[in-house]
Simulated assay, not measured.
Amino acid sequence: MSAALSAVPEAQRRRPTLAITCGEPAGIGPEISIRAAWQLRAEVRGVLLGDAALLAQTAQVLDPAIALSALSVQAFRNSGLPNFPQDRLIVIDCPTGEPVVPGVLDARNGRAVLQTLDVAVEWALKGQFDAIVTAPLQKSTINDAGVPFTGHTEYLAERTATPQVVMMLAGGDAPHLRVALATTHLALKDVSAAITFDGLGRTLDIIHADLRDKFGIARPRILVTGLNPHAGENGYLGREEIDVISPALAAAKARGIDVAGPYPADTLFQHKYLEHADCVLAMYHDQGLPVLKFASFGQGVNITLGLPIIRTSVDHGTALDLAAQGLGRADHGSMVEAIRTAALMARAKNSL
């Protein structure tokens, strides 16, 4: 058992049931999902969602001792999950339209990938799953299948009718880093206009609520970067800190949120500051994530805040080139951490 899990009270140490969507079948998703779920089978009840035949073949090559039991989506809808022992993983079969060739995308399999998400979300909302953990998928495959798709985060927000979500990545050691983003996949020239008083306020509310309710942090402390170099240098390098960011932080403090900033991003990511913080809110993608990924790439976790369900994911992509080389080469460390994080969040949420 990990050190983090051993610190959880015994009453909260039950094995949560996690839906693990296996992502793009031609990528490394099936391999890392199986390996991580099997490694952590004593800590979580792992339910894999993907093509059952592909997953059985993959498991047999990885380790013949890995035991899988499959059921159809309809059987799951009718009867729910069966009781299954610790030495077995359940697969909810979402069959692909065409045979899978590792490393080769096929648009005819895009809808099967989407089905894994639909089933996971539907039954997480109904309480059948304590959390969802997602392996990487290929956006182009789903779009090529005729379904407009911009990414996991946006799709999950739409499926759960969530008006705003926040991307947060976590990882690293001493102290553990959590970095949330005020804006995500935007061109740099569009970032300033996207940072608004109301938007920052909602983002801080979401971070505060989820750190409290899904991480069990009674009074989360959030540090916030500025947008400009040196946090604007008192207006000489930009006024966003004066006109937007500082007023939004003051309003958040008035609502009872423990938030401080804006700080220069080039000096904030130091141990002496981070050891007293539960999260850093960065203004844009490449301001916060290079630091996080330098500290923890391959072991980091992507967490979607603001959803009515818990969702974590890996910090990497489908690695089609690696999948094409054969099984046994992919590093499943990030998936292990994503599953462990989802389990800890589920326990914290269920203990409230």
Rank of each mutant, 00 (worst) to 15 (best):
L5C: 00
S351E: 14
T225R: 07
G172R: 05
E154L: 06
A3P: 02
Y263I: 05
V301D: 09
L268E: 02
Q164C: 09
F84C: 01
M167V: 03
T203N: 12
A218W: 10
T304K: 02
S296H: 02
Q115I: 02
G235L: 07
L114G: 03
A254T: 13
P82K: 11
A36K: 01
L71P: 00
S140Q: 15
A277R: 06
T203C: 15
I303W: 08
A209D: 13
H285N: 06
L68I: 05
E10L: 14
S351Q: 13
P16D: 13
D278M: 13
S351K: 12
F215R: 08
I339H: 09
V147G: 04
V91L: 05
G146F: 10
G226P: 00
I257A: 07
L237V: 14
G46I: 01
R108C: 04
A135Y: 04
T150V: 09
G300Q: 03
A67G: 04
K293M: 05
H176G: 01
A135W: 08
E233M: 12
S351A: 15
L55S: 03
I217A: 03
E337D: 06
L200S: 01
H332L: 00
I222Q: 09
D173W: 13
Q60I: 06
S79D: 14
A319H: 01
L322P: 05
A52F: 10
W38V: 01
E154Y: 09
A193P: 02
N83W: 08
A124E: 04
L49K: 10
Q138K: 11
R111E: 14
T183P: 01
A343T: 00
G326Q: 07
P64Q: 11
M335W: 15
D190L: 15
R219D: 13
I339D: 05
I217G: 03
R45H: 06
G300E: 05
P247C: 02
M345H: 11
G127P: 10
A70N: 08
S140F: 07
G80C: 08
R14H: 13
R77E: 15
E10Y: 06
A295V: 08
A161S: 10
P136K: 10
A187F: 05
A65T: 13
A277G: 03
D210T: 11
G171M: 04
N109E: 11
I142Q: 05
D173S: 13
N350G: 13
A56P: 00
A52N: 07
A42V: 06
V259S: 04
A338M: 10
A194T: 03
T196V: 01
L181C: 02
A187P: 00
V291K: 02
P148Y: 12
G328M: 07
G256N: 04
F129W: 11
T141R: 06
F129L: 09
G226T: 00
L292K: 01
M283G: 11
G232A: 07
I222N: 11
N143T: 02
F149S: 03
Q287Y: 12
P264L: 06
R178G: 04
E10A: 13
V179C: 08
R178S: 05
I303E: 08
N350S: 12
Q287I: 09
L68Q: 06
Y236P: 00
M1F: 11
